[in-house]
Lab assay of single mutants.
Amino acid sequence: KLATQLLVDLAEGCHTHHFNSLLDIIEKVMARSLSPPPELEERDVAAYSASLEDVKTAVLGLLVILQTKLYTLPASHATRVYEMLVSHIQLHYKHSYTLPIASSIRLQAFDFLLLLRADSLHRLGLPNKDGVVRFSPYCVCDYMEPERGSEKKTSGPLSPPTGPPGPAPAGPAVRLGSVPYSLLFRVLLQCLKQESDWKVLKLVLGRLPESLRYKVLIFTSPCSVDQLCSALCSMLSGPKTLERLRGAPEGFSRTDLHLAVVPVLTALISYHNYLDKTKQREMVYCLEQGLIHRCASQCVVALSICSVEMPDIIIKALPVLVVKLTHISATASMAVPLLEFLSTLARLPHLYRNFAAEQYASVFAISLPYTNPSKFNQYIVCLAHHVIAMWFIRCRLPFRKDFVPFITKGLRSNVLLSFDDTPEKDSFRARSTSLNERPKSLRIARPPKQGLNNSPPVKEFKESSAAEAFRCRSISVSEHVVRSRIQTSLTSASLGSADENSVAQADDSLKN
């Protein structure tokens, strides 16, 4: 292990032709098999893994070397290190390495390699500790012929580059190093199909959405987006994914797998022009299946994007999809995704031109529960009313008269009656009930004795009459309010007539 670390330190600071010789020695160290011998017992696995620490030291050392060589000349050094790393990870899946030390190597290698970024000039870069990406002036992410390196360097940008540029090249004859992302992409596909350690798979799935944002990485080298989509959909639809995973937390289920895969599918929607129609349908189907899991909100957001990006695919699945959405409970976490999906859909009339009455009724059935102001915040309630109004205007004229009683009944049950079921009123009724029952229970537990009763009969009569009056008032709060309003209006009217009579009498006395 110490000798391997010494080789790594020497290679990191070497800029001459001896660098390749040092890498040859490190490569021989990495070539050791990580498969346990067949006769190895389970209690000896930890000791055997400790004997392979030099392999881990070599791989982690290459990660440090690549981070240094990416910004220094010659660029061919970075290319050689990158290829060695990718080849080593491929061996893991070729020979099915399952030892804990092998999983640790893959975890740290993917953690580093999935941080690679590219700008519009195809320059590769890595983020620093502050998250700012520094791009290399010597390494690009696409394949290029050595003699055409300078031509590639002087080509115009596709868009303004992001991030601070690296140091300027030493001279005009500098050759750019090619670090094609397709090599890593193929290893990522192998990981999605064969990885057995949940920690490694979770890391890859968590980092892929951010990497897919940099389309330069994908399009400048032959990366098959179709295969990526197929691998992701197979993970969700195939039963073998959960069987092969180990190291998963207790209670791990298909729902947890959906939570990890759906963000990658959402990021892949922007590549729909490069996906086969069959793959697009598979993607939409997987998102529909996710509606029954805890990732339902993410799936609804993804389907909203699909309705804009892939209208030809979503239009066929939309009638059944809208009916499925009615089975989702009206909760605060689902309110905004569902209502925004319906609001977006209302502005795309070509998608729902074939809707029948059942689909329009489903839209109103989804939106009406969110009009309850005692359960949802003001934004959700306003958005629900907006969706109902928009869809009522957009639905066909023959359907409107049939939906009017349905909508008014839903609004009455969710908006008007919600004020009668407020917690304050319920607590008031509970308190009044307890007050009504309390005197009775006290009389049963403690019967009054005439000799020891010091309270006069008049006081008892007053208290009983007050309790009886309170019971009468607490029967119905709404009736009490109505009666008080009527009494107030009658009182004001009587006072007004009394004032008029007094004024008339005063005038008569003055005349006399």
Results as ranks from 00 to 15, higher is better:
244 R>I: 04
156 G>S: 12
105 I>C: 02
60 L>Q: 14
144 M>K: 09
186 R>F: 05
93 Y>E: 01
71 Y>V: 02
65 I>P: 01
52 L>I: 06
165 P>N: 09
184 L>A: 09
56 K>G: 07
56 K>C: 05
70 L>A: 04
151 E>A: 09
64 V>W: 06
157 P>M: 12
117 R>F: 01
184 L>N: 02
91 L>C: 14
91 L>Q: 13
223 C>E: 04
131 G>E: 04
96 S>W: 06
220 T>K: 03
221 S>M: 02
151 E>Q: 10
104 S>A: 12
141 C>M: 02
84 M>H: 02
183 L>S: 12
85 L>P: 00
63 L>H: 06
212 L>R: 00
64 V>T: 13
133 V>N: 05
73 L>T: 10
131 G>M: 04
152 K>D: 13
202 K>I: 02
111 D>N: 09
129 K>D: 13
182 S>F: 06
217 L>F: 07
219 F>S: 10
85 L>Y: 00
186 R>C: 08
104 S>G: 10
189 L>N: 03
183 L>M: 13
247 G>H: 13
246 R>Y: 08
252 F>G: 02
125 G>D: 01
103 S>E: 10
139 C>F: 15
197 D>Q: 05
147 E>Y: 11
141 C>H: 02
210 E>Q: 08
241 T>N: 06
211 S>N: 09
236 L>F: 06
81 V>F: 01
116 L>Y: 02
124 L>V: 15
76 S>V: 07
242 L>W: 12
193 K>Y: 12
219 F>N: 13
173 A>R: 14
226 D>S: 07
128 N>C: 09
205 L>S: 00
138 Y>F: 15
163 G>L: 11
57 T>Y: 05
135 F>Q: 02
242 L>A: 08
69 K>R: 05
232 L>D: 01
226 D>Y: 02
191 C>A: 07
70 L>K: 02
189 L>G: 02
142 D>Y: 04
135 F>M: 05
243 E>T: 09
185 F>V: 03
59 V>R: 00
155 S>G: 12
218 I>P: 03
67 Q>H: 07
157 P>D: 12
234 S>L: 07
213 R>K: 10
235 M>N: 01
106 R>W: 00
134 R>Q: 08
99 L>P: 01
129 K>H: 10
69 K>S: 03
142 D>T: 09
125 G>L: 02
76 S>I: 09
196 S>T: 11
74 P>H: 03
179 V>E: 02
85 L>A: 04
128 N>G: 09
251 G>Y: 05
233 C>G: 03
231 A>Q: 14
165 P>R: 14
232 L>K: 00
237 S>M: 12
142 D>L: 03
157 P>S: 12
121 L>I: 06
115 L>D: 10
86 V>L: 11
64 V>L: 11
72 T>F: 06
188 L>H: 00
231 A>M: 05
154 T>R: 11
99 L>C: 05
126 L>Q: 03
136 S>P: 02
87 S>Y: 07
55 V>P: 00
141 C>V: 06
225 V>N: 00
137 P>L: 04
129 K>A: 13
251 G>N: 09
189 L>S: 02
71 Y>D: 02
165 P>D: 04
136 S>A: 04
76 S>M: 08
105 I>Q: 00
140 V>N: 05
49 S>C: 08
55 V>N: 01
223 C>P: 02
97 Y>P: 01
75 A>L: 04
183 L>A: 10
75 A>R: 03
142 D>A: 04
191 C>W: 00
116 L>S: 02
151 E>W: 08
70 L>D: 01
90 Q>L: 09
87 S>N: 12
95 H>Q: 11
179 V>F: 09
233 C>K: 02
55 V>R: 01
79 T>A: 07
193 K>S: 12
68 T>Y: 06
75 A>N: 05
186 R>H: 11
89 I>Q: 00
143 Y>P: 08
199 K>S: 14
242 L>C: 09
245 L>T: 02
125 G>K: 02
78 A>I: 03
92 H>Y: 00
159 S>V: 14
184 L>E: 01
105 I>S: 00
215 K>D: 02
245 L>A: 02
103 S>W: 02
68 T>N: 09
117 R>K: 06
193 K>C: 12
184 L>I: 09
118 A>W: 02
216 V>I: 07
163 G>Y: 13
185 F>S: 02
203 L>V: 11
219 F>K: 10
63 L>N: 08
215 K>G: 03
74 P>T: 03
64 V>I: 07
123 R>F: 04
205 L>A: 01
94 K>I: 11
212 L>P: 00
236 L>C: 12
117 R>N: 03
89 I>V: 07
173 A>K: 13
162 T>D: 13
120 S>Y: 12
106 R>F: 00
244 R>V: 04
229 C>Y: 02
95 H>P: 01
214 Y>N: 11
237 S>H: 11
121 L>H: 10
251 G>I: 03
104 S>F: 12
136 S>T: 07
152 K>Y: 12
90 Q>N: 12
207 R>W: 02
239 P>L: 06
194 Q>T: 08
197 D>C: 05
51 S>C: 11
147 E>T: 12
97 Y>L: 02
89 I>C: 03
176 L>E: 08
82 Y>D: 01
222 P>N: 09
67 Q>C: 04
62 L>I: 04
210 E>L: 08
99 L>A: 05
126 L>G: 04
116 L>P: 02
221 S>C: 02
96 S>R: 11
156 G>R: 09
68 T>Q: 12
127 P>R: 07
156 G>Q: 12
224 S>E: 06
129 K>Y: 10
85 L>G: 00
196 S>R: 12
102 A>D: 01
138 Y>S: 07
175 R>W: 06
187 V>K: 01
186 R>W: 04
103 S>R: 07
197 D>I: 01
224 S>W: 04
91 L>S: 13
202 K>D: 06
60 L>D: 14
101 I>P: 03
67 Q>P: 04
214 Y>T: 05
63 L>C: 12
95 H>S: 09
189 L>T: 06
125 G>I: 02
50 A>D: 11
205 L>N: 00
52 L>V: 10
95 H>M: 12
124 L>M: 10
238 G>N: 13
55 V>I: 06
49 S>Q: 08
63 L>G: 12
90 Q>W: 09
209 P>M: 06
197 D>E: 10
237 S>K: 07
86 V>H: 01
215 K>L: 02
175 R>V: 07
166 G>C: 11
231 A>V: 09
161 P>S: 07
163 G>A: 11
149 G>H: 14
224 S>V: 05
117 R>V: 03
124 L>F: 02
118 A>Y: 02
234 S>P: 02
222 P>M: 04
139 C>I: 10
244 R>C: 04
175 R>F: 10
56 K>N: 07
96 S>T: 09
58 A>Y: 00
58 A>M: 00
145 E>R: 07
155 S>L: 11
62 L>W: 00
201 L>Y: 01
88 H>I: 00
247 G>Q: 07
77 H>P: 01
125 G>T: 03
147 E>Q: 09
230 S>G: 12
52 L>F: 12
128 N>V: 06
96 S>N: 13
71 Y>L: 04
66 L>R: 00
244 R>E: 03
137 P>V: 03
129 K>G: 14
56 K>V: 05
246 R>I: 08
